[in-house]
Each structure stands twice: as C-alpha cells, then as structure tokens.
Write a protein that binds this DNA or RNA. Structure first.
Lengths: 335, 335
DNA sequence: TTGAAAGCGCTAACAA
DNA sequence: TTGTTAGCGCTTTCAA
C-alpha cells in the first residue's frame, strides 16, 4: 500500500488522503525505500528497456555500430528508456541466441545490420517487437530502417564525373552484402546515365575494413603497373577509403593532387581524415529506430496492430572534403 | 516443476528421472517455452546485467566513452553478462538518478569518468557494488580504475625534450579535472628533471574537445604574433590535438615539418590522423572494470568482503606517429 | 523422485 | 479513502 500510494501520487491523486500520503512518504524516506524495477517489470510486463543486438568483434571499434548506437541511447534516454547491448559473435548465432534475449528483460529489440535469411520467421520470438537497421533482407514481422545507399553512390559518382573524373576505381564492399550491391549499382548507374561504361576491372569487392581497403588497392595497383593511375578512388566505406589513402601516400602519391579519394558512411573516420564521403544519417537511423520500436511496443500494449510502414528509407548526402579535387591534368602511370 | 527440471538439468541430474526429464523437455519444446529473465531475476536476485553510467551528450560521439564501452561489452559478453547504458546529462544529476538505476535490474554499476564529490557516500546505494573508471576523486566504497596519466605525460615530454624540442606548448584539459592536472604535472616534471622551466604562457587549459583545441590555439597564436613558433604542440587529448592541427594547417604551416603535434588518449582520432599520442589502455580499462565488478558482485553474493585493491592503475605508453618529427632547424615566427 | 507451498517485490482489482 | 487478495513467472524449501 505504501508503494501504491507513493506511485499513485502521480496517477490517482484523489485516492489517497494527504495525511496518509505524507506518512507513506516519510516512511519511504526513512527506510530509503527504492522501488524494485525487476518486481515492477514482472507485474507490469514492461521494463522500459530496449535491446540492441549487433556483432561486435575485433580490436578496432566498429564506428558504424558506435554511431548508430549513439543515436539509439540518446533517443532512448530522451524517451525514458535504457538500452542494453547484446553482442553476437556472428549472425549465425542469431537463431540460437536472439530468442533468449527476448526473455522479459527488454520490451523490444533493435537488430543492427543483421545478416539473416528471409525465412527467419520460425525462430523469431513473436512476443517481442523487433526493428532492424540496414537488414540484408526483408524479414517478416520486422520493420526495417535503412538509408538510400544507391542514390548516395549514384550522386557521388555523378558528381565525380561532372568534375571531369573518368577513371573511377570503386573499391567495393563484400559481395552479397545488400549495401555493397547498392553502392556498386549507384556507381554503375551514374556511368550509364552519362553514356559511359567503366572497365570491369574498376569495380573491386572486399570487406569493409581499413586492411581490406589497403590490400585490395595495393594488389590492384600491382596488377596494373604501367597503366594509367585512376583519377579517383571511390571507396564503399570510410574505413576502406582510409586504407586506400594509406597505400597511396606510401607510394608517394598526393591526395587529392595526384588522385582523389572518397569514402562512404561519414563516420568519425571521414571527419577526422577530412575525407569526402557519402553521408548516411547513422545517428538519425538509430534515433528513428527507437521511435519506431516504441510505437510498435505501444501498439502491442494497446493490443492494436502496428500500422506504420514496414521499411523506412532515410536520405543520404554527398559531403565534399579535402580529399576530393579536380582530376590531375597530366595523367600519371602506376609505378 | 517443468522449469525446475529443465533448469536443474544442469544442476541436479540425479533428482529427475530420465523419463520425466524427457517429458518436460518435449513439452517445453512444443510450447516454445522461454524462461522469463525478469521473474528469474526477482527470485534469484541476479540479473546478469551490468550498468554503465556516463554523460553522453553533444553531437560528436565521445570517443573516450565509446572505446571504454567497447571494452566493457566485450568482456561482459565473454562473462555471460549484458551491459545496459544509463546516460546522465550531467554528473550533478547523479545523486538523484544513480540510486534509481540500482533498482534490481543491474547487479553492479560502472561509473565512467564520474565527477563526484568525495562525500557522495550518503546517496550511493550500498546494496549495489560500484566501480569507477577515471574518477575525479576517491569515493568511499567505490573501486576505481585509472591509467598513469602523469607518467604518460612525463614520458612524452621527456621524449620531446630529448628530440631537441624546447618550446613545447601544452594545450591542457579543463582546470580542476584530475586527469588534466596530472597531464600538466607530467609536462612540468619532465621539464624540471631536465633543468628547464617552460614559460608560464606555454601551459593552456580548456575543454577536451576539438573546438576547444582549435580556439585555444588560435587565440594563443594571435596573442603571440611575431614571437617564435613553438616547436611542438602537446595536446591533453586527441580531440584537442586535432583541433590544433586544423588551425596550424589553416595557417599554412606543415605538420610535422614546421611544427609537431602530439595528443593524448590514443582514440580512433589519433589512429586515423596518424597522430603521435600517449596511449591510455581504454578498452583494457573497460574490460578490467568488468572483472573487478564481477569479483565484487561474487563477494557480495557469497557474503564475503571484497578484498582487492581500492585503486587500480594501468600503465600508459608513448606512441610515435607521423605528426611528430625533430624540431625545425630554422625557427619560424608566428604570423 | 516428485508434488505442494511459500515467497521474491510489486501492481491491480475488488471489497470494505 | 483504505485494506485485502490474488497474481506476474520463477526458485526453493519441505513433505510426501
């Protein structure tokens, strides 16, 4: 009854006499009473906690994750929720572990860049609302948030072409990854629109990391010795772009005077390296994911169906920085 | 009894007959039974969840926080724990909000770089073990983890002096912040050891951010027009160092040919900008904080006193990168 | 080896 | 306006 009064203070002010309320408050104060969130959660079926599932491995922090996560916790805090992180070694573990996460301690789950089969339905817990950011496939029952990567890549490539760049080397992301495909598609579409066709060997694919970018570019340069140096490297991620820049500098080439470099994502890496890039609204994506998730949770609480869209696309934007300049007039050859 | 059996499978294998176990397992499977962590937590008084409290505001993600946090979640996951984040707008809110966090949903709390009064004891909940990372003061009942910032700053400064640098401008952290004091102290001690005394105006103080670094250096340079350019800028954080570099480049100065820049922390900023810095083992600090916290939680569960140290200091390390070179032979003046 | 019962700390519906 | 009661889903005695 103490708890009832203390709490109802906010809800039913008429229910308790002032005298009783004062007595309860005094007692609570004296006992340093703290309501227990677990018990309350049990009774209430609501923990005011959102889960975030992501793969988070390796030594170097994944900036993509960290930026989205930053957006998530800021918005969650603003909505009176807290966020708890579940790490997956690999998305193959998802079928086994995700149902365990949805065990009453979270009200909803955000999947960060999940690599899941479209038929994940059998094991996806149906009692917990789920949203995903940059899912690789549409998943039944999961609302997805993404950014318009193809248009971003398209606009960037078009801009490069308009500046006079012609030999545009695309150091792309992993084959099969939806985002990587979309970026490559934008790159190709911009060429097609300009009536151009980039040589097939100007489109590489590999992991999204600094090392992958470094190695991919280096081996490509070695294979193309004596041929003309590309005008610009269009990396499919900022990390790749950084790796490429590193190799170019190591070869004594100047960025952007000899060759430009542009990235993708606009993580802190690009901002720090003053690298031109395609901005994905990472923090907004995280914040919006929280909004949608809360809407779904509310709908469930009120036993309504969630009526919002199943897929939400946020715009991307070309960001010009110091690593992008007009192409060199005198063409260089690869040493 | 189903739950009992299912769970006791791990604990008391003799208690349940094989037949019953099989029946229970089959039923659980058919019902897609999932134990409820909240109820279990209520009964068990253990959520297997660690809390992390930090101030996390502003647009640009705080890399210091993110790196420590990365270490925390990795180690927590390895120990079968999850981490939930509580954000504070300001450490002044701590007295009001921290007791609320310790409401049964977490087993222990990690305070990230707390700015707390030493007499925080009255409101610190005594039923939840707490550890801090880089606390500003010793707090009764809280085990603190930190890194040896003074030695790091000392070693870096000594190294700069040994390279022949003499005019070392220290763009320091906020006055009153323990870490900033320690960094400044190391800077001064290295000078003293070499029988040198830096001019008083070579020691600035301000916030830890890129903007603060940029503004502090710019106004300092304006105030010292015509005087000799420093040999090197020793920034009290990577962010400050980045801000300083930005201003130097904008003035047409070359780093490190005209002037060197070194930072502090070794966040992703320094790694990306190839900036020399003093490395703080941020991820290790996070991981170790988890270890100590779990040890304290176990001690409490077993009703023992925690017997480990009250303060743990991890070493720092000088990292040399491209922004540090020998001082310029011909001295430049400030334009 | 199994079943029954009490309780973790709170909420909510119902009586008084 | 107040007190009582019955859960929330699980764990843990204690009997049977």
């Amino acid at each position: 009854m103490a708890a009832s009064a203390v709490l109802n203070a906010a809800k039913t002010s008429t229910r308790i006499s002032d005298e009783t309320r004062a007595r309860v408050l005094a007692a609570a104060e004296k006992l340093r009473y703290r309501p227990n969130a677990t018990a309350r959660g049990l009774a209430h079926r609501r923990m005011n906690t959102l889960g975030v599932a992501a793969t988070l491995v390796g030594d170097e922090p994944n900036q993509y994750f960290l930026e989205v996560f930053n957006g998530i916790i800021q918005r969650a805090a603003a909505s009176g929720q807290t966020a708890t992180v579940f790490t997956l070694g690999d998305w193959d573990e998802a079928a086994r572990r995700i149902p365990d996460f949805c065990d009453g301690r979270i009200d909803g789950l955000i999947l960060l860049a999940p690599l899941l089969e479209p038929d994940a339905t059998p094991w996806l817990p149906e009692h917990t609302p789920i949203v995903s950011v940059h899912a690789n496939h549409a998943i039944a029952g999961v609302v997805n948030l993404e950014s318009d990567e193809e248009t971003g890549a398209f606009e960037m490539t078009r801009r490069l072409l308009a500046m006079g760049h012609r030999r545009i080397l695309h150091v792309g992301g992993p084959p099969g990854a939806l985002g990587a495909e979309r970026r490559a598609r934008g790159y190709l579409r911009a060429h097609a629109e300009a009536g151009l066709a980039p040589p097939a060997d100007h489109l590489l694919r590999g992991a999204y990391s600094v090392e992958a970018g470094r190695d991919a570019l280096e081996s490509w340069l070695c294979r193309h010795r004596g041929q003309p140096l590309p005008d610009v490297v269009f990396a499919a991620s900022d990390a790749i772009g950084l790796g490429c820049t590193e190799r170019l500098l190591a070869r004594g080439l100047h960025v952007p005077d000899d060759i430009s470099v542009v990235g993708f994502d606009d993580t802190v890496l690009a901002r720090t390296a003053r690298m031109a890039t395609v901005r994905q609204p990472l923090r907004e994506l995280g914040a919006k994911a929280v909004d949608v998730l809360l809407a779904r949770i509310d709908a469930r609480v009120q036993d309504r169906a969630y009526s919002g869209p199943r897929n939400i696309v946020l715009p991307t934007e070309v960001v010009v920085r110091a690593t992008l300049a007009a192409p060199r007039k005198a063409r260089l050859s690869i040493a």
